[in-house]
Design a protein around this nucleic acid. Structure first.
Lengths: 150, 150
DNA sequence: ACAATATCCCAGTGCGGAGACGGGGTTTTG
DNA sequence: CAAAACCCCGTCTCCGCACTGGGATATTGT
């Protein structure tokens, strides 16, 4: 029904992760793959799409990683979803060959519903999500504690 | 984003078609495939799902076909979508393996959004769509006119 | 009774895309 | 200069969706 691909979910988690575990140094891909159970190589591709979309900024070299390309409040969930889903094209032929009923009745309804969804996603910013995460007591930087267990 | 499979679109068109072109005799599958450009054999499967879901009623034998199993106002778009999408399983593992952020923040948002969509789809009945079609001047029974062309 | 017509049922096939893998290239730090 | 990270691109493998096929069952008309 509301189908968000795994890639999109990953993108969302990654961006929020970076925003939430904000430090002076950038966040590395392997930290994220550690927190989620994802192949590093696959996550990198997703990160690339986010970089090209102007959501993340990649920092190369040792001690490199990713950081947000703009303020938390200026990144919406819709932005991330769109970024993750570009490159997953549509042929232009959307779905059915279409009878008159399809074109005149069904299409408009789906279109308007889709519009509602998008504007809803656009109204949620990463800042909102961070505040929410902090409020519901998600503990940040589970990595820092792991650093000192021998 | 809002992904409705071709099968679901077909189901919607078929049900509205039957409701809109209502006559004493049931509507046959081949009439529907004529109005839309779909293989008959494929449409039959979709019709079966709708029959099993209690939305359509199949009438066998010559002069048979399909009719609505209940009143137009008691069938919602949500019913049809659900009927068309059952049998298109989910493994139980929904999408990502999930970090804490995924489970506590992202999942709830998607869930509530999904709920909104469903309740929106449930609030639209086939009767609404028929009224709308008549209002926007979709000409009914394009078959009846074809009946008399030689 | 029998043939024709249409729905029912239970599969099998093929293509395309998402997820995942791997080989390298480029930039930065020490 | 070597190590560590990001960057880039081609390829492979499953799996779901759209589609097809062979019959079984019910109903109508003659």
């Amino acid at each position: 029904m509301l189908k968000l691909s795994r890639k999109t979910l990953l993108a969302l988690e990654a961006v929020i992760d970076i925003a939430f575990n904000a430090r002076p140094e950038p966040v590395q891909a392997k930290e994220i793959t550690a927190r989620q159970g994802v192949p590093q190589r696959y996550l990198e591709q997703v990160m690339q799409q986010l970089v090209r979309a102007g959501i993340l900024k990649g920092v190369r070299g040792p001690r490199g990683g990713y950081r947000l390309a703009k303020e938390r409040r200026r990144i919406s969930v819709g932005d991330i979803v769109r970024a993750a889903e570009t490159g997953e094209e549509e042929n232009g032929e959307d779905g059915a060959p279409r009878s008159e009923l399809g074109v005149r009745i069904i299409n408009p309804i789906i279109q308007s519903l889709q519009g509602e969804i998008i504007s809803k996603l656009d109204s949620i910013t990463v800042e909102d999500l961070c505040r929410q995460a902090r409020a519901s007591g998600v503990h940040a930087g589970e990595r820092t504690s792991a650093d000192f267990t021998i």
